[in-house]
Amino acid sequence: MPGITREEVAHLARLARLELKSEELDHFAGQLDDIIGAVARVSEVADQDVPPTSHPLPLTNVMRADEVRPSLTPEQALSGAPAQEQQRFKVPQILGED
């Protein structure tokens, strides 16, 4: 299995929205390389014809009736907001589209 490079860590950090410092990139790259080297052992079973388990319980079809339940008040909803305006969450300018 391939190891993990500093550049890959930088790419992953961007995907995960982490503004890592330069020294962190080096530090994590080394550690993650070790960890991935160790955990890559799971691929020993890659060829085995067994279904993946994504969930420990064999439950299906857990659903709720389409009935309205009380919402939070707007005050409660906004109570943790770092900033608010007009009863809305105020956030810095959004880049991109839509």
């Binding site: 993990i4 890959e8 860590v9 995960a16 982490l18 550690q31 799971v42 279904p51 993946p52 994504s54």
Partner: peptide
């Protein structure tokens, strides 16, 4: 941070089957 990066890696396209997929097979076994 370490785990977020590790998890982002394990789920990213091209690695999913080898890592997350295999890990779930281990889980079955």
């Amino acid at each position: 941070k370490r785990r977020i990066i590790l998890g982002t890696y394990a789920l990213s396209s091209g690695y999913y089957d080898a890592y997350y997929g295999s890990a779930q097979k281990v889980r079955t076994l």
